[in-house]
Amino acid sequence: MRRVCFLLRVRPERMAEYRERHREVWPEMRRALRETGWGNYTLFLADDGLLVGYLETPDWDAARRGMRDREVNDRWQAEMAEFFTALDGRDPDEAMRPLTEVFHLD
């Protein structure tokens, strides 16, 4: 199982709305994440807008490809893109760059 951690930055003026949107993630989006291998998926948001994402998956590339092929993900990414800084024209999923794991205590 691969552990994946990534960082994004939420616009400070949109943080409250970002939190609110994640209180009620669409059921079909939750289902798509599970079906494509996004296990133990967790988002953490710092007071300065730093978003830390963590997930576990057997195959990171396959998990990302699986979500790219889902229509619900297209809709979700289109709605979420406006919340982030520095996407450079990419959707949030494309902007995710996993951090290098340097230690893990099992």
Rank of each mutant, 00 (worst) to 15 (best):
Y41H: 14
E13H: 13
G66H: 14
R31S: 03
M67S: 08
E35G: 06
R30C: 04
W26A: 11
L8Q: 10
W60E: 11
M96A: 13
W26H: 10
C5P: 02
P58C: 12
V52N: 06
R11H: 12
E101R: 02
D48Q: 10
W26C: 02
A63M: 14
Q77P: 01
R3Y: 03
W26Q: 10
D47M: 04
V72K: 01
P12C: 04
L50N: 08
R90Q: 15
Y18W: 15
N40G: 13
Q77T: 15
E94C: 05
A81I: 15
V10W: 00
L87H: 12
C5Y: 13
F84I: 04
A32T: 02
E24D: 13
L45N: 12
L7N: 12
V10C: 08
E17Y: 05
A46V: 00
Y18S: 05
R3T: 09
L43Y: 07
E13G: 13
E94N: 08
R19I: 11
R14T: 03
L7I: 06
H104F: 13
P27H: 06
D61T: 05
G66R: 06
A86F: 00
E20T: 14
F83Q: 03
A63V: 11
E101Y: 10
R23K: 11
P98K: 12
G39V: 01
G53I: 00
A32C: 07
E101K: 01
P92I: 13
L8V: 03
V52A: 06
M96I: 04
R34N: 04
R2S: 14
D47H: 01
L87W: 08
Y41R: 01
M96P: 14
R34M: 05
P27F: 10
A86T: 04
D69N: 15
F83K: 03
G53Q: 00
E71R: 07
E35F: 02
R11S: 10
Y54E: 01
L7P: 02
R70W: 03
L43K: 03
L51I: 00
V4N: 09
E13K: 05
Y18F: 15
L55R: 06
W60K: 07
F103M: 04
M15E: 03
E35M: 11
R34Q: 12
W38V: 00
D88K: 02
D48C: 00
T100M: 06
G66T: 12
L51M: 08
E20N: 09
L50R: 14
R34L: 08
D91T: 15
H104D: 11
W38Q: 07
V10N: 13
M96D: 15
F44G: 01
F83R: 11
E20R: 15
G37Q: 12
R31M: 09
T85F: 03
D91W: 15
T100L: 09
E56R: 07
D93I: 09
R70L: 04
D48F: 05
W38R: 05
